[in-house]
Design a protein around this nucleic acid. Structure first.
Lengths: 351, 351
DNA sequence: GATTAGCACTCACCTGGATAGAGTGCTAAC
DNA sequence: GTTAGCACTCTATCCAGGTGAGTGCTAATC
């Protein structure tokens, strides 16, 4: 059995109607609402076929049909009309983003906020991956006895500070030396390569100051240990409460499992991690999802870049019965817009 | 009609049983579970009195009794047995907090996490109020053309950085001058006084460099404007999902209103803002609460200090039917413990 | 006078059966 | 190939009756 044009039309009608109403859709409804020029009986026959093909299913015998994950997949790939945001909204988005462009963290989080507001779904944003960035500059500032403020500048323009233990016997001058070595010799290393590189470099350069160096290494080592725990905050969520408005989450237990996962940053990261393909939009529907807890959810995501380098992901999560047209167009537009803006803004910081 | 000892015992029994079971409690249950030596009939008479006094109420005629807000209030103030955490747990708490003492933000947030874990309720933590802190040190570091990294150290030990626009015609040396003036003359000003003080000081000291100063002022002004938006993040929540386990929140709509408020930082701040009394524990029960959304919730809170100066609040939020004994003892212990630790740790940073 | 046993009463909740309604699948006619 | 008709299935809703927890009142008891 093959998909012919009429079957496609019917599947499309089912998906659209179900997305709109959240109720199983029957043959009568279709023949009335969508003008296919055939009677309910005919549609019933076609629906039986569609069910056999696995595109739709019946919650129970006397109910209408509901799209299966496969049905959504087919709809998304073959049937969905393209959908463009209206210019008004595009302008609004660009304007709001531009306002916040100076603070990279803020503009990215705000993007998530916009996505969830516009879609009425939950937005997920994977923020720039600290580990993948290279460190451009390293400074030390005095803090108090035995401690110093370490300020790091990443190549994507992010600035972070942390307090490091230096012991009471390290002088500001020694710190200065460490920073200078770093800034002159190692600027641009990957954070993950840093330890090794710095070790070698330091031993070579300053073999005579071994004692100091040993101390420094401990500091840096500890710092990177600390900073790898930084992963915890990498996914930014917004609009989680929107899920409560979806009829599929009227059951408190579903809410509980879903929200529990929301608190597990690691799982969310896996979910958003750029797939092999990397480029373009990623759509994961229902049980295509690795985690069982998301078997009734779909995720649309896309990566954004700075200077052609993927640095994060924007996604939107909703019930499988979500408005794919809208969600996709928004995620698509948002990532492109963000990419453009960030690239323009941080163009001069190419490494 | 007056409260006599037996009425008190019965009220106490009702409150305790209802807290434990979340079911309206009847006369029979009381005479069986709690050994008062009187028959259900007697208890019924007393209960009728207690109801007349406003301490308990009946959901419907044929149901048992439930404590009213007034009843909880009476229980908390007159009937509740004191409750001490066991030493084991205290040690655990102290140990966990001590581990994180170096990062003031972290130790405070972790306190919230512990509170919610131990109580199985939602914890609210009001973090140190940036505005009230004084600025201890100010540094500038090079960033890129026209911008600099400004690093500030507060008297409570917090370090923050932000990127400031300095225009292309400001030299590092000029920045250095600004920072020096600040560090020498104004260290310890309140952030809110800073602008005025710095203005005067700068004009007096360096009248001849008016052009630079004007630029600087703009920077600082903007920075403080930015940082006053910092309020948004001042309340830290943990264990919000615990609320979903409470039977009183099996209705999705209640969850929705509650969680919506959780996202309104301002409201939470009002809730936690130290009351006039300030000192000691604050207990707000049900409709004593200013916001209708919390009419079924109670909040226990207390302030923590550094060097005797109130800097924040720790609170726990749960249904009115929460375990007040446990909640109170934990909030109490936590604030005291945190106060001790912070005061010890940051003793040397008195302003 | 306080306490208690006894009893009638109320009300939420559960159960089972009847009913309505939506939707199907099949068959036979077009 | 399409459609009208019809029997069938299954859910949701309603209603009646039964159950049980709990009460309030009254009269007997301590």
């Amino acid at each position: 059995m093959q998909m012919d044009e009429r079957k496609q039309k019917i599947l499309k009608a089912i998906v659209q109607d179900y997305i709109a109403t959240a109720e199983p859709v029957g043959s009568r409804t279709i023949s009335k609402k969508f003008e296919l020029g055939v009677s309910p009986a005919t549609i019933r026959n076609e629906m039986a076929d569609l069910e056999e093909l696995g595109f739709i299913e019946q919650p129970h015998t006397s109910a209408g049909r509901v799209p299966s994950d496969l049905g959504y997949r087919y709809y998304v790939e073959n049937l969905m009309d393209p959908f463009d945001l209206d210019e008004e909204r595009k302008r609004m988005i660009n304007q709001e983003l531009a306002k916040r462009l100076d603070e990279i963290q803020e503009v990215i989080e705000y993007t998530g906020k916009l996505v969830s507001q516009i879609t009425n779904l939950t937005s997920l944003v994977l923020k720039p991956q600290t580990r993948e960035c290279t460190l451009k500059k390293l400074y030390f500032l005095p803090y108090e006895d035995g401690k110093a403020i370490m300020v790091t500048v990443k190549d994507n323009g992010m600035v972070e500070n942390s307090i490091v233990d230096i012991g009471t016997d390290t002088t500001p001058e020694e710190l200065q030396i460490l920073a200078n070595i770093y800034n002159e010799k190692l600027s641009g290393s990957k954070a993950s390569d840093l330890k090794k590189g710095l070790l070698n470099e330091l031993y070579r350069e300053l073999a005579r100051k071994r004692r100091i160096i040993d101390g420094m290494l401990t500091i840096l080592e500890r710092m990177f240990d600390q900073k790898s725990g930084d992963n915890t905050e990498r996914v930014y969520l917004d609009g989680t409460l929107n899920m409560l408005n979806q009829p599929e989450f009227k059951d408190i237990n579903k809410v509980k499992t879903l929200f529990s996962i929301f608190e597990e940053n690691r799982k969310l990261q896996e979910l958003l991690a750029p797939k092999d393909k990397g480029e373009g939009l990623n759509i994961t529907i229902g049980s295509e999802n690795p985690d069982l807890a998301f078997k009734d959810c779909s995720i649309i995501s896309a990566t954004y870049n700075i200077n052609g380098k993927q640095i994060g992901t924007i996604g939107v999560l909703g019930p499988t019965r979500m408005d794919y047209r809208k969600a996709i167009s928004i995620v698509d537009y948002m990532t492109k817009s963000l990419t453009d803006m960030l690239t323009n803004r941080y163009r001069n910081q190419k490494t």
